[in-house]
Computed example of a mutant assay.
Amino acid sequence: MKWKDSFHPYAATTIVFWSLAYVFTRLALRYFSPFSLGFLRYLTASVVLLILAFAWKVKPPEKKDLPWFIVAGASGFFLYMIAFNIGCVTVSSSTSSVIIALTPVITALLARFTIKETLRPLQWAAIGVSFAGVLVLTVLRGGLVVNGGIAWLVAAAALLSVYNLLQRRLTRVYSALQTSMFSIFMGTAMLTLFLPGAISDLKSAPAVSFLYILILGVFSSTVAFIAWSKAFAKAKNTSSVSNYMFVTPFLASLMGLLIAGEPVDAATVIGGAVIIGGLLLFHFGAARSVIPSETAPSKK
C-alpha cells in the first residue's frame, strides 16, 4: 500500500491530538463545568469548520442522510462530551485514557451485531479481560459506588464506538471533511443547551483557559475528527482504525506527566496493565482472523 493511500498517518494524527485532549480537558475543568467545556470546545470547532465550509464550498448532506448525522452528532459529541467531561472531573488523564482505550473492543463488539463482523473465541476472552481491568481500576480507586467517574468514561467509550460505526457508514458516501463537519455541527447544536452556563463560566475564567479551549477545539476536535474520518474512508475495515486507540493510554500518561505533572497511580498501573493485556489479546485474535476486503466507495 502506498503511503499516500494509507489510513495510518490519519489515524496516528488523531491519536496524538486525542491524547492531548485528556490533559487539556483536565486543565480546563478547573475553570469550566463539564457541560460548559463541552459546548465551548465544539463551538470553537464549529466556527473553524464553518469558515472551511464557505471557503471550500462544501455541499450540504442530502435530506435522507440527516438522521444519520443527527445520531452521529448525538453519540460522538453531545452525549460523548457530557460523559467524557464528567468522568474526567474525578479521574486522571492516564486512567481516563486507559478506560477510553476500551473503544476498539466495544466497536468490534457492536460491529458483530450490526454489520456482522465475526469475533473469534480468543477475542471474546479478550473482552472479558479488558472489562476485568476496568473492575480492578474501580475497586482500587475506592469501590463500585464511589467511583462514578469510571462508569461515565465507560459510557463515553461505548458512545464513541457507536460514532465509529456511523463514520464507517457515512464515509462510504461523503468525504471525511463533510462527515466530520456535519456531525460536529449537529452535536454543537445540541450542546447549545449549556450556553447560559458557558457564558457564566467565561466571565470568571482566566486568559490561559481560552488557550485550553482553542487547543481542544481546533486540534483535538477539528483536525482530529477530520483525520479520523479520513482514516475510516481509507481503511478496509473498522477495527484497523479503532485499534489505534490502544496507544492512547501511553501517550496520555506521558503527556499528563510532562504537561500537567500528573502522577501515575497504582490503580492505573495495575488496572491499566490488565486492560492493555486484554486489548493486545484482542488484537492478536483479530490478526488471526480473515477479514474480507470492502470495495472503496466513491466520495462526493
Rank of each mutant, 00 (worst) to 15 (best):
S6M: 04
S6V: 02
H8S: 08
H8L: 14
P9Y: 01
T14P: 00
T14C: 14
I15P: 03
F17H: 03
W18S: 03
A21Q: 03
V23T: 03
F24C: 07
A28L: 05
R30D: 13
Y31H: 12
F32L: 10
S33C: 09
F39Y: 14
F39A: 05
L49P: 01
K59F: 00
P61C: 09
L66C: 05
P67D: 03
F69K: 05
F78T: 01
Y80W: 07
G87V: 02
S92E: 03
T95F: 13
S96D: 07
V98A: 07
V98L: 11
I99F: 12
V105D: 07
V105Q: 08
T107Y: 05
A108Q: 08
L109G: 06
R112G: 06
I115D: 11
K116Y: 06
E117I: 13
L119Q: 10
A126F: 06
V129Q: 05
V134P: 12
L137R: 10
L140F: 11
R141D: 07
G148K: 08
L160V: 10
L160F: 12
N164I: 02
N164V: 03
N164M: 09
L165M: 12
L170F: 10
S175T: 15
L177T: 04
M181P: 01
M181H: 03
S183N: 09
M186C: 15
M186R: 05
G187N: 07
T188E: 10
A189F: 12
M190V: 00
L191C: 10
L191S: 11
S200T: 07
K203F: 09
A207G: 01
L211R: 04
L214T: 15
L214D: 00
I215D: 04
G217Y: 07
S221T: 14
T222W: 12
T222Q: 10
K230I: 02
F232Q: 12
K234S: 12
N243K: 04
Y244K: 14
S253I: 07
L254E: 00
L254H: 08
M255Q: 08
L257P: 00
A260K: 02
A260L: 11
G261W: 12
P263H: 09
V264E: 11
T268P: 06
I270P: 02
A273N: 04
I275R: 02
G277V: 00
G278M: 10
F282T: 00
V290H: 14
V290W: 05
S293M: 11
